[in-house]
Design a protein around this nucleic acid. Structure first.
Lengths: 268, 268
DNA sequence: AATTCCTGTTACAAAATGTTACATATCCTC
DNA sequence: GAGGATATGTAACATTTTGTAACAGGAATT
């Protein structure tokens, strides 16, 4: 909060402050910093004074339970921005998996910029909303999927970061360790290994060294992973729990509303 | 997107639009609707045209996997607002556990209001940031905690919604079914029952009927649940993984920065 | 008040995952 | 490039969780 004004930044506060600033613009004004593998940018519980944008490299984001268990809540890749939730303290530790290049921007000052620039504010909201979507996806994975499904999902998710086309084989690099994967997927190292072996035997994936992955049939892998296809319009899913009637809700008209209360009368 | 203007709302768009609007204010202008137990407000995959604020009652929020498994990603209680992530489609189904009273506000118009009122925009961001925090907490629970720890965490979490004081016994109502709890905690009904029984035998909780819960020793229950104490300043945790050096990062000074790159040199 | 249905509980067998132990591969330093 | 340290892979065994099934209890209806 007591940061001295930097001329590099101050032009944002002027009339240009109303321009369509993007997060990328904001961070572009800052110098690069480096964080080597195994070192941390910040720790869980630290006062959250800065936000960070990753330029190169990968971070693991984790929390530690009182008894020492480690839960990796996510990984940060180039382009990702950390600390945008504007909490008082960081909720997780951010540790470099590989050497990371990043830029930082002060928390409070970014908030001030966002207050003056709705577009920037909206972009921040979008980033957090996407993180929330990813977190919910992960909740589904951790709560409902088997070990093999989790590993398949993880490989596919990382593959699709590189190539969006599921119909063609994908080759990519997986920088994190097996322990990272395990702590992210809620499994042990051994279970991860077993699952990878099975996927290899099924001809769906193969490995070269520890970190290079080949997805031979991403499409089939997706089906195997129990990938949720929701959001694909026209896709009707058969379910066997109290969740059948998927017909679209119709009464979303928004005329001048009647004074009386309405009732959601969607059949069960 | 083709909503006709409503006079009830339009005064927000005028000069008053710059006032410190709160989400509560915005929804207060709308009529109440009711949704009876078992019925849904919206479905996963529906086009997201409205946001909702719960006035009374409880909703379960869930996604369905292609093979029918149900993952409850959360519950919505009075005061909670749904749909603020402004995605094109709802990512989950919102179904009433009890009869629910709620108010709705059109997606696009709320976005427009937020663009004119930084305070409102900021409040929306806070809501999503809190949801994100809860989702990460849940990821830790699902990935790292045992069945009994999960149930203990769940009971405690719901108890603390009513009473913030962990040192005194808590009595509260748990409106959802055992199946809801199971699908939320990534367990089966039977495992939930067994866990509850053990907690009962340990003298930590007791039940009256299906939905009334007594937490006799919330403090002890919290310890049992492996509750993360992070965020409590001065709390140093002993860990046994690659996460030891928890000393605070010091070089967060933010002077006019040197042109050269810096390095995060926190020891590992 | 009795019946019926639904939800919740318990016991035991089965499956999945975690543990332990050790072999092998890869990485890093010298 | 040698050698040690670390990470990974595999297998046998232990534990936890699940699946199945039978039963108990509560609420709503008759």
């Amino acid at each position: 909060m007591a940061y001295s004004a930097s001329p590099i930044i101050d032009h944002f506060a002027g009339p240009i402050g109303q321009a369509r600033l993007s997060l990328e613009d904001v961070f572009a004004t800052r110098v690069s910093e480096f964080c080597h593998a195994g070192h941390s940018i910040f720790w869980e519980g630290d006062v959250a004074s800065d936000t960070f944008r990753v330029s190169e490299g990968v971070l693991r984001l984790y929390r530690i339970l009182p008894d020492g268990r480690r839960a990796i809540t996510g990984f940060a890749f180039p382009g990702d921005v950390l600390g945008l939730a504007f909490h008082d303290r960081y909720f997780y530790t951010a540790e470099a998996v590989t050497t990371v290049r990043l830029r930082r921007f002060p928390h409070g000052r970014l908030q001030a910029l966002a207050a003056d620039c709705p577009h920037l504010h909206y972009e921040i909201l979008q980033v957090i909303a996407n993180e929330l979507g990813a977190a919910q996806e992960q909740m589904v994975l951790l709560g409902q999927k088997s070990a093999e499904e989790r590993v398949a999902s993880f490989l596919l998710m990382n593959g699709l970061r590189v190539a969006k086309d599921r119909s063609a084989p994908i080759v990519f690099d997986l920088p994190m360790t097996r322990l990272d994967m395990a702590d992210y997927l809620g499994l042990t190292i051994e279970t991860v290994c077993r699952a990878v072996t099975k996927l290899r035997q099924a001809g769906l994936v193969s490995l070269e060294g520890r970190h290079k992955v080949f997805l031979h049939k991403p499409d089939e892998l997706a089906r195997f992973a129990g990938q949720d296809d929701s959001g694909c319009p026209g896709m009707i899913k058969v379910t066997h729990q109290a969740s059948w009637p998927r017909h679209a809700m119709a009464n979303l008209n928004d005329e001048l509303e009647p004074a009386a209360s309405r009732t959601c009368d969607h059949s069960h």
